[in-house]
Design a protein around this nucleic acid. Structure first.
Lengths: 175, 175, 175, 175
DNA sequence: CATGAATGAGAGTTCATTCAT
DNA sequence: GATGAATGAACTCTCATTCAT
């Protein structure tokens, strides 16, 4: 979180963990493998959160809103996030790394798509193209994430964007 | 383009320019200042392109399409782009750098907003909220750009997304 | 055999022995002591071989030839030999180590000298200076050993050299 | 000379040369390349000495004796010699290195062979097989060199061996 | 006895940066 | 202006060695 991926050194990490440098090397041969592992753990965590929400019997629009609010939190405090490290990691990445990141993205798209379809059935949503809409939402989030790191993003803007995204899914008479 | 910002060294640049290291230091004290200058030049170039299109008397939807196609080209060949360097540069950046990047982004938003308004007048578009729509478009592009670097993006996906974005602007009966 | 003395580490040895590093340290405090022991064992082995040959009632020239053939085998496959390790060990060595190696060398000289004297008596050999001749033979062998490691040595050359050495011991009319 | 090849570090050399480590790396990427160069220079030096002796119109036996005395000097002070480094270097060596060392050895053999042939003509020597004899002499020298490093060698022994080698070349009535 | 986690010293290596020429 | 040799800081990585278990 503090240094991102490119700038962090094994020394930094060893010191932060209060472990010797040699000791750290017993577990990870480089920052790359280490980050990979950390990302995997984090990924597992957020999956759990998602599943919990789904099994809580909330309405689709409610769950989607919760998801977007969760994203908002991260957008407001990008420096408490591993996103910067993830991006830098991805930039150097081989195909294997790209596959890992792609999978993360597409899982999110699928879940949102699923929510939209459910909402279409309950009448909460009226979206002719759930897959494209879901992809679009995720790309906007991705765009906001990177914006948060590169130029900063205001809370107002995030809120407006969330409303805009949700608005696009609602039936016309509801707008 | 080859190394991004974090990995490139003054040595790399000096060699690529066939200049001595000491000589390079006469012009730039670090890769940071050097990249800043390169980005500024590039920015000026793309502004010119935009202005030229506007003064060519094309319809708003046509210009927007041209703009999106231009973006598509970059998305298909991210390694021939300075985006990676720009992102890495932004990640380390101080407020000054952020302001520079934000300005670039907002100029683009303004132009797109302007095009949408023009399109609303000519009847090509029917968009109740030009500013939000323009912001949304730019965020999607930003999302696709970062995706192109982190996980790769297929031409099909880009095309579908472009259609989706334009589709959102068209009058209902035109869909 | 694989790494020589300078390059081998306690880690290598522990792994090759499928023992823990800590466990290895219970027996040997360093590669030096360990090698010393291995060399001692090997030395004892080759002494036994020699003694066996002597008590087999072969003629002196026969025994000498057997000895030289044994050396030849080692010269042809220096990488299956501890010679490299021995040399590297000797290079770092204190007086104690030198004494050990010198003893090995001089024992061999004595045996060869003894064989030459026996051959002189039976008339197989005609060598006015058995001690010098024996030293000479051992030095040539030493020279070939080091050559085998440093530049390689062909079988033909070894054969020729063996013939040359034996030839120098034979009575003039036998040549 | 002090550390041999395996133990010497770039740091040692940098300090001995009163140069910074980074500075040393400007010239040599590793101790290997550095030693290679030093050996080449030394080799050139000793070639010159040899050539000078040949053109001084001394008798073959005289030149040979001078050569052997030169070798003796080195044998008496092996620690002022690069032999140890050369041996260790050779031990790790690839084919290229072996070829270099072999060439050195064979050049010496050729010169000695040449001297023996000249001596045969002048009647100073009576050696039926100059090539084998020359090889033998060089192997003995090699044997003494390695002995000097591994177990030490006394001046008396060297003298005796030199006499023995020369003796083998002289006509029978001269012995 | 044996293990293996942990430490810490030290080697290799690369560059940002300076400066005499 | 321009060069490029030189420096020195910092980082990676590997093991000899120790020690609690």
């Amino acid at each position: 979180m503090e240094r991102g991926f490119k700038d962090v050194t094994m020394k930094d990490i060893a010191e932060a963990c209060q472990i010797s440098r040699g000791g750290l090397y017993l577990y990870y041969p480089s920052t790359k493998e280490l980050l990979r592992d950390v990302l995997r753990m984090e990924s597992a965590d957020s999956d759990d959160t998602f599943q919990a929400a789904l099994s809580d019997n909330l309405t689709p629009s409610r769950i989607l809103l919760l998801f977007l609010r969760e994203q908002k939190k991260e957008l407001m405090h990008p420096e408490q996030t591993l996103n910067l490290a993830l991006y830098e990691y991805a930039f150097t990445g081989q195909e294997e790394d790209k596959a890992f990141i792609k999978k993360r993205f597409q899982q999110a798209v699928q879940i949102i798509e699923h929510l939209i379809r459910m909402g279409n059935e309950t009448g909460e949503f009226d979206c002719p193209n759930p897959h494209d809409a879901a992809t679009d939402i995720m790309l906007v989030i991705e765009g906001m994430k990177i914006s948060a790191h590169t130029m900063g993003i205001s809370e107002r803007k995030v809120d407006r964007e969330i409303r805009y995204l949700i608005g696009g899914l609602l039936p016309v008479e509801a707008e």
